[in-house]
Each structure stands twice: as C-alpha cells, then as structure tokens.
Simulated scan of single mutants.
Amino acid sequence: MLFDLYDENALLLNTNFKSKADADNTFAYRGELVLVEGEIGDAKGRKKPPVSVMRNAVLLSVDDKLTLVSGCLDELDQLTEFVAKYKGDFAAEMKALFFVVNITQPMQVVLEGVTFALIPLTEGIAWNELLDVLHLEKSDLKGQSSAEKVVTAYKEFASFKAKGDVVTMEEAAGFTADIKREGYGAI
C-alpha cells in the first residue's frame, strides 16, 4: 500500500495511525508527512531531520492514489514542495484542503490539475479544523474506526464549497505575511 511505501522511505513521522478502511484498497493516515527530506548525514547513509514537513496531515488513499489530502503548512511555499514530491500519487479526483499559517485570507490554487483550498490558521489542529469546515460533528463520526472517520470527511467534500478566489501561486504569494504559528500541541 502507498502509506507502507512512504513509511519505508521515512516520509511519515509522528504517526497517529496508518490503517485500512472498510472499503477495498482504501487506507487512511494521520500524522506528519515529509515534504523535503534531510541530507545524508554520515557515511552510513543516515539522514538528517527533514527540512520541511506537513503537520497534522490527513491522507486517504484508494487504489494507491491520494484521494484526500489535508494538513497544516507553516508557509505557502510548502504547497509547491508537497506537489513536487507527491504529484505522481494524486488521484484525478483528489480533494485537497490545507491550513496555511502565513496566508492572510482564504483562497484556492490549481496545481497539477488539482484545486487546493487554502485557509489561514495560526492555532488549532488541522483535523479539528477540517471537521469544522466540513460541518461534521463528533456524533457524525461516533462508532467509526479512525480510518472510517477520514473516509467520512472525504465523502463530505461532495458538498464542500471552498472560500476565496482561484489565484495563481504568484498571486497567492501576495496574500502572505510574516505570521508564525502560536503552538502545535500541549505545553
């Protein structure tokens, strides 16, 4: 499966779960996803820590193609890193919604044929924010496995309408600011 391959290549970090959903060839993952790998650090081939990661990643794969991608990016430029590294794994109908710390307004960007909804976020957990944006309540997920919760989120995208205009990456860069995230977890 796709996420096993990512795991073997040390692209998954701080894994919350990686598991099969009820449908055939459907798998879900939550954790961190490496966007830019660290350099080789020694003669034994061990790598230095990643240069860039997507935090709070929520991924769904069907038939070894990414059908849902969500998570938190510290900077808008990380979107191009994500696309460069993973575009070969995109499903034609992939749904993508990223919470981006350094943008000032909601917008949409089309890259590699996929529309990426981008929403500003300086605090909070991407999974919780995703549920809010998709208007899902905890009761909608009650009794479901972790993987099935991700499948439910994917199904809700059918009625999701992204806010903000569709802009180019160059135009999107004009809506960035020097904003830092307030925190990633319990202190």
Results as ranks from 00 to 15, higher is better:
residue 70 S to A: 12
residue 145 S to I: 02
residue 182 E to N: 12
residue 83 V to F: 08
residue 129 E to P: 10
residue 148 E to K: 07
residue 118 L to I: 02
residue 106 P to W: 01
residue 24 D to R: 15
residue 45 G to T: 09
residue 54 M to Q: 11
residue 37 E to G: 14
residue 151 V to C: 07
residue 175 F to Y: 12
residue 23 A to Q: 14
residue 141 L to E: 08
residue 78 Q to E: 14
residue 117 A to H: 11
residue 48 K to G: 05
residue 45 G to L: 01
residue 39 E to G: 15
residue 170 E to A: 14
residue 123 E to Y: 11
residue 65 K to G: 00
residue 55 R to N: 13
residue 187 I to Q: 14
residue 182 E to K: 15
residue 176 T to G: 12
residue 101 V to F: 07
residue 11 L to C: 03
residue 50 P to M: 04
residue 150 V to W: 00
residue 185 G to K: 10
residue 85 K to C: 11
residue 147 A to R: 00
residue 83 V to E: 08
residue 145 S to Y: 03
residue 62 V to Q: 14
residue 39 E to M: 14
residue 53 V to Q: 06
residue 21 A to L: 02
residue 77 D to K: 14
residue 52 S to L: 09
residue 34 V to R: 10
residue 12 L to T: 06
residue 73 L to T: 10
residue 33 L to T: 01
residue 8 E to Y: 14
residue 64 D to R: 11
residue 145 S to W: 10
residue 108 Q to N: 03
residue 114 V to Q: 08
residue 84 A to R: 13
residue 103 I to C: 10
residue 73 L to Q: 07
residue 29 Y to D: 01
residue 167 V to N: 07
residue 46 R to E: 14
residue 133 V to R: 15
residue 31 G to A: 05
residue 97 L to A: 08
residue 41 G to N: 12
residue 57 A to I: 02
residue 128 N to H: 14
residue 22 D to E: 15
residue 59 L to A: 09
residue 2 L to I: 12
residue 57 A to M: 06
residue 16 N to Y: 14
residue 124 G to W: 01
residue 113 G to N: 03
residue 136 L to S: 04
residue 166 V to A: 12
residue 105 Q to L: 13
residue 168 T to H: 02
residue 16 N to Q: 12
residue 82 F to S: 07
residue 18 K to N: 10
residue 55 R to L: 04
residue 130 L to Y: 05
residue 98 F to P: 06
residue 138 K to F: 15
residue 157 F to G: 08
residue 1 M to D: 05
residue 131 L to D: 10
residue 148 E to F: 09
residue 53 V to W: 09
residue 4 D to V: 11
residue 116 F to D: 02
residue 77 D to L: 11
residue 90 F to P: 00
residue 29 Y to K: 03
residue 50 P to A: 10
residue 137 E to T: 08
residue 59 L to I: 02
residue 129 E to W: 06
residue 101 V to M: 10
residue 127 W to S: 04
residue 179 I to V: 13
residue 74 D to C: 03
residue 61 S to A: 15
residue 150 V to N: 07
residue 119 I to T: 13
residue 40 I to C: 09
residue 104 T to L: 08
residue 181 R to W: 04
residue 133 V to M: 15
residue 66 L to F: 07
residue 161 K to L: 10
residue 21 A to K: 02
residue 26 T to F: 05
residue 183 G to V: 05
residue 6 Y to C: 07
residue 145 S to D: 00
residue 76 L to G: 06
residue 40 I to W: 02
residue 106 P to T: 03
residue 145 S to K: 02
residue 61 S to F: 04
residue 148 E to H: 13
residue 92 A to Q: 12
residue 97 L to E: 05
residue 78 Q to P: 10
residue 187 I to Y: 13
residue 3 F to M: 05
residue 177 A to R: 10
residue 43 A to T: 12
residue 32 E to Q: 13
residue 148 E to P: 08
residue 82 F to D: 07
residue 175 F to R: 09
residue 105 Q to V: 08
residue 7 D to T: 13
residue 65 K to I: 02
residue 173 A to H: 11
residue 78 Q to T: 01
residue 59 L to S: 00
residue 163 K to E: 13
residue 45 G to H: 03
residue 58 V to H: 02
residue 93 E to M: 06
residue 145 S to N: 06
residue 158 A to H: 07
residue 64 D to F: 00
residue 61 S to L: 05
residue 177 A to P: 03
residue 13 L to Y: 01
residue 84 A to T: 15
residue 136 L to G: 01
residue 12 L to Y: 01
residue 28 A to Q: 01
residue 73 L to V: 09
residue 74 D to Y: 09
residue 71 G to S: 10
residue 50 P to S: 04
residue 58 V to S: 14
residue 62 V to A: 11
residue 106 P to G: 05
